[in-house]
Design a binder for these strands. Structure first.
Lengths: 246, 246
DNA sequence: GCAATAGTGTCTTTGAGACACTATAGG
DNA sequence: CCTATAGTGTCTCAAAGACACTATTGC
């Protein structure tokens, strides 16, 4: 039997049906707090529960495209030009969805601060929630969120992705607040400042400064934009916590 | 409509069928070279081509279990007690499989040196191939392998997973050869030795030594086993290569 | 003036890497 | 004896972090 002949006699229905969804852990910083985009589900299962935005992958749509579409439906356009989107992990335990075997390909997104989310798709509402308050999620989305946070915290160390959380032009202080919000710990302002500028390609000066000083006083800060580095060398390491190592 | 009622009226066939496979990038070190497990496909599509071992996920089987099963079929038992297995990435572009929409959840495995592989499943042959010689793979397995190698090289830096490539008791020299094979560059023996012993929890002494010296002379080396660290602090960083950063 | 922030100077400690060296084995 | 490897000593340089300090702004 040749390959052509084989393919002609092939029936997709011979295989057990599995549905595929994408779910997005979309993170942003609002008022100095790390927030995740959640939707209130308007349909069964888990109607009325909070969940990560997501939905079924359409035929002939790549996984990346599906994730981008789901994110757009809840946040509006505009964001996506500057947001970072990457695949996180796939969750496929039998029974994680009561309907049938559903595979969820989770994505992780970093977005600059956005005004407000909007409902879209099968969600009856969508809003940003501080990550500490995001509990009781539908399906296994609690575990997905936890994995996404781990990944995000680690990626700030060795990639310049913190710049995906701020506007196109930003100050070193704003960048420091991103790190503080994601890592959940304060960073020494002086050392952070010097460190960021010392990493080749992390940020580049625009030459400008902010129009005003800080809200509670202080000099005008210089403005920077993201540099061309894809990895930070040397990395910005978190202080090693004894737990997590063993 | 309540949730019970909703589920009763739900028909899985309403959704487009997607098949799910797991494919495993299984790595080991043989004769100082990093090798990947490949199978010769006995069935269409790509019959006669080399590919990563893998197959369809069975109903009610977790993804992890499917990956473990596929690995076992080609390598025999015994390995698995000591092998490391982790999810790598999911590949789902429409058209990556000519039969139908197939989602491949790729896994990455590290195994100690094994005698020989064996055919199993729908493979007509299975063997270890040095990674530089693993070209022309079926489907998008070339890209999967490349992603797996990237992940493996990065993980040696900040995790003790190099110990998954060696026997339960090993010498520092053997560990160094793992790093050299995976990274493709020689490491300074003296500095590596001191560095490994200085990282808390990386290795712990067994008290014993090898029975004989090296094949070409040299003193008997002390034996170690893997320690209890899950992350290396400080990490064993590769020398920063200018390419790859920008 | 006072408080808060931007940005710099400097010192200490740690770690990476280069190099040299000794000791121990096989052939 | 020769060679290869195990393991250690030591020096230099880079980087992290602590601390101090100046300068500039809003109130």
């Amino acid at each position: 039997m040749g390959e052509e002949e084989f393919l002609a006699g092939y029936d997709a229905r011979d295989y057990p049906a599995v549905a595929v969804t994408v779910d997005v852990v979309a993170l942003t910083i609002r008022a100095g707090r790390l927030c995740v985009l959640l939707v209130e589900r308007g349909e069964h299962p888990f109607a009325g529960h909070r969940a990560l935005p997501g939905g079924f992958v359409r035929p002939d749509e790549t996984l990346d495209a599906a994730a981008l579409r789901e994110l757009t439906e809840e946040t509006g356009l505009g964001v996506l030009e500057r947001a970072h989107l990457e695949q996180l992990k796939t969750y496929g335990d039998p029974g994680r969805d009561p309907r049938m075997r559903v595979l969820s390909v989770a994505y992780l997104a970093f977005a600059p601060s956005l005004p407000e989310a909007r409902a879209g798709g099968d969600a009856s509402a969508a809003y940003w929630v501080p990550v500490e308050e995001a509990s009781g999620l539908a399906f296994d989305h609690g575990a997905v969120l936890a994995d996404g946070l781990d990944r995000a915290r680690a990626k700030l160390e060795y990639t310049p992705l913190a710049t995906a959380f701020v506007e196109r032009e930003f100050t070193i202080g704003e960048l420091r607040q991103v790190y503080a919000a994601v890592w959940g710990e304060e960073l020494h302002a002086g050392n952070f400042h010097r460190k960021v500028l010392s990493v080749p390609g992390f940020v580049e000066s625009t030459g400008g400064t902010t129009a005003k000083g800080g809200e509670r006083g202080g000099p005008r800060a210089k403005l920077y934009r993201a540099g061309d580095a894809r990895l930070l060398h040397p990395a910005l390491l978190r202080p090693a916590r004894e737990d997590g190592i063993r």
